[in-house]
Nucleic acid binder design. Structure first.
Lengths: 213, 213, 213, 213
DNA sequence: GATGAATGAGCCTTCATTCAT
DNA sequence: CATGAATGAAGGCTCATTCAT
């Protein structure tokens, strides 16, 4: 009992306060094991706090999950819209967007895993939050508007706007979600390179797909 | 892994169900709750058998999961390749393929959910099985070959074959996986109609994307 | 693992089956500690079964409590009515009844404690059961009828029947419930003797109290 | 027991409440849930103070319980004796006493519940306090003396004094403790009226029971 | 006096798994 | 093949209590 834990004995002020530490640990645990597979003990241990502390700050495992996902989504999704929304050229816009998607989902496996899990077993609350955040970011609308404009000015073929945007999202995000299996099936040897080329390939296919001949 | 199970080669004839009933129940349970969230009790109860029976046929929850996924994949994926592989025209081939994907993943939520779960938390064994099955089906290769042929004959632009196929899969499968959120973000009101139009829209975009002007 | 526990290794047939053993252990535990203070671990250990077994037979601590109380009440209360209901003489009836009450509550501290606890923190379900069982036993009515008869025949004063019966119950049962403190306050030195005299003293006071002068 | 608590002799004046508020909250909580079922958090919250404050004033849950019970008993029991001890007539004395009992236990469910709980699971310390307080109040002795006097003067039959007093207490206090179930079994419809009549009915039965014919 | 944050121990409950029959 | 009963090992959550400020 009372084995000296190396670091802090009731930390004075340094650490980013235990609430944040729990959240960080929860992010890892939930991403790795899913909501059902996650273990409260592991989260607490990895956060370096007592298990009861976790229930002091969050009230249940379920609530911790929701707060964790909320944090992740709000944190990451916000970044995209800002940087993208100032492009005027469609080509540039799509490129910028595709790169952001890759960055957003590729850099941090957590985000990708949580997205997959929510798609598999949606939590209404979490789902609402995700959808709302994306819509608020203005991105889908922004892209649709840009395409529509060029369509009206006669540069593009007449295509269904929603299907077009859905396809663009799927080629980017959908691919990333599926990449482990797609890459394998297609015998992609140098994954890194393939992922780097991807942005360009997608935008190229898409633009040619919608442009007039 | 893959230890030779001594006994039954899918037992002879007496109680033809039991094993099958368990598998069916397991399919539902795993799809709804994921591997970690699934409960052996529920599977047994829903299958109408004793829990011990389940352990008699399958040896552990983990093994039951693997067999369940295997069954699903083998069962569903096999169907696609047969019907598709006899198309000669690229247009026809892609249409046929797109329709199969939709059918394959859309009709039965189970398949979609299991795929998402495996993508989120891959089991090497399951993953191997899926990839192997897809490759064996010959489909990706078949498509790549068909595109390559038309590319050589000068009908299509020069594009990276793997990226093209990846995009096609993503527009179809990736979209389906993400559809709950994509549909919502794009304010798709009549989902059924949208999904029905999808095949055509995808093939249209893709073909225009690769064709020469 | 698998430390040899002295007694039975999955008992064959002897013990009165674990359900009954749990119930017996629960009776002791709940009586000694109350519902809140009772510990499931202790009950299981004292019953010589695994904790999970307890949840297999009963579904929760709360339910175990209810079943335990039900068992006790049904078991004990039933005995009284049978033996009492055949007395014709009022004197004899009251004596017989008083003796049964003492026996019922005195012999088994469990019953007394559970009654006190239910009086302090009633569970609707348990309360219903107790009341119903008592009423069904026919005793209160039986006594009231007997008193009423003698009242009409002019042997007794005119008194309120319900108050009379309430007083009789209180002098018997109420005293037993309160005895630890009453005995102490009254400086009763030989408790056993006092309790033995009690029946007679109560019937004497009661009969004189209702008789005509 | 009764370790000298170093600090406050019921602190001077500054925050006169805090301690009192905790005691009030504790009274409710303990009465409603019993000692084991009571929750320190709830007491603190309902008292509007921090949990640590509670430990500052009282040193443990157990001690808080003891102080709470002590407070209640001392507070309530004291009142009875004063007002009763000046009656000279036995009839008047018993009536006055019966009314006090009803008031003492009936008005405030807390007292009734705590008494029941202590009877079910006695705490030596609390029990001592209760008994001592009652004895000190002089009441039992007072009643015994009054009865004895009338007995000697030939007005009453010769009965055992202790049994007589025990019966009187039981008819009053014992009835109140058991009233929820007694009333129900006897099909008492207007409880309030019944309780109001009770005093008279009890004294009447008792006096007739002890008087000479 | 007063507080928010922290903790160890324990509590009720559940789960995958096994055994005797 | 089939079952009811049994179990060890957690798993999530709570509780009385304490510490730094």
């Amino acid at each position: 009992m009372a084995e000296q834990k190396p670091v802090s004995g009731r930390q004075s002020d340094s650490q980013p306060d235990s609430r944040a530490k729990i959240l960080a640990a929860a992010k890892d645990e939930f991403a790795q094991h899913g909501q059902a597979g996650a273990r409260v003990d592991r989260i607490a241990r990895q956060a370096g706090v007592n298990k009861a502390m976790l229930y002091y700050h969050f009230q249940s495992k379920d609530n911790l999950y929701r707060e964790t996902v909320g944090e992740i989504i709000a944190g990451n999704l916000g970044k995209i819209s800002k940087e993208v929304s100032q492009k005027s050229d469609l080509d540039e816009l799509l490129n910028s967007l595709a790169r952001k998607y890759a960055e957003f989902l590729g850099q941090d496996q957590m985000m990708r895993k949580m997205l997959l899990q929510e798609l598999a077993n949606p939590h209404p609350h979490v789902f609402d939050l995700m959808a709302e955040t994306i819509v608020k970011s203005g991105l889908p609308n922004f892209v649709m508007t840009a395409i529509e404009a060029e369509m009206k000015s006669g540069l593009l073929r007449t295509v269904d706007l929603k299907h077009a945007v859905a396809s663009f999202m799927a080629m980017n995000i959908g691919y990333i979600l599926m990449s482990p299996i797609v890459d394998r099936v297609l015998r992609v040897t140098d994954k890194e390179q393939f992922h780097n080329e991807r942005t360009e390939a997608v935008v190229d296919l898409f633009l040619n797909g919608v442009k007039k001949k």
